[in-house]
Design a protein around this nucleic acid. Structure first.
Lengths: 132, 132
DNA sequence: CGCCATGGTCACCTCCTGGTGGGTATGGAA
DNA sequence: TTCCATACCCACCAGGAGGTGACCATGGCG
């Protein structure tokens, strides 16, 4: 998947799904949408993910143009991951998915075992009322 | 996945992704959005899918409340699959995914090897011009 | 020098999804 | 009775994503 030789699906929907449907990608994206993040930072934010897997996911998203990677030649080698324009364009899509996911949980009477939406509308600027 | 014991993810986004990200689900949904379809009909529309897999996908979507199944006690046992309300609510989401998928293809200069969107807005009414 | 932090790689293993091939039940046509 | 169509299940398998653990390079610090 992370290999350029392996092309993405022909159908746009499937292409999009393939690109964002990684085990941790939505969550990572959520954090990165909020501003540049270092590897260790992300790791700290998601204790359940392995560093290897985290890097793996980031690499794939980088290759797919969702995030950018900047290396600072500093003392203990700093690396920052940022969301690209293309990546940011996913925010509304993820939001739509989230909304539908909630509705789905409602209709299945499983709202109880459902976590927060995480992906809120325009987390960056309008850090406004999540409580609508 | 199709098993009730296996619960869906807690995060709404992941829940939604898990539910719609089957190898053939978007396509099946597309066809079913357009009206009730029989198994054999769907099979004919997607020659590349195995009947077993088709049924499998339909079962999962049924279990997740995306499609409904109606059995007609007719001569050669007829079965119709229809989109539920919940399923129909996915149309805009799939559309968003599709749009983003196209944009992604553009930005990666792979528009050439990209098929049609398939999921068009309200396929029923505005059957617009696919010829760009 | 030995130790630690950061960022990262490599080998390996497991589980799940999708895919293939065959088999089953009902009932009409030949 | 044999054959075929619809709708469906079961046993099995291959490939890939995700996960675990060990290991490497740089450079400050005690």
């Amino acid at each position: 998947m992370a290999d350029p030789t392996k092309r993405l699906p022909k159908l746009p929907v499937e292409r999009a799904l393939k690109v964002i449907a990684g085990r941790w990608k939505p969550v990572i994206l959520y954090y990165v949408f909020d501003g540049p993040k270092r590897l260790s930072e992300l790791k700290r934010m998601m204790p359940d993910i392995t560093q290897k897997v985290l890097i793996q996911q980031l690499r794939e998203m980088e290759e797919h143009g969702l995030v950018g990677r900047r290396v600072f030649a500093e003392v203990p080698a700093r690396v920052e991951y940022t969301a690209t324009e293309l990546g940011l364009a996913l925010e509304p899509v993820l939001l739509a998915l989230c909304r539908w996911g909630q509705r789905h949980a409602e209709e299945q009477n499983e709202l109880d075992e459902l976590a927060d939406c995480i992906v809120h509308p325009r987390a960056s600027q309008a850090r406004a009322n999540t409580a609508a």
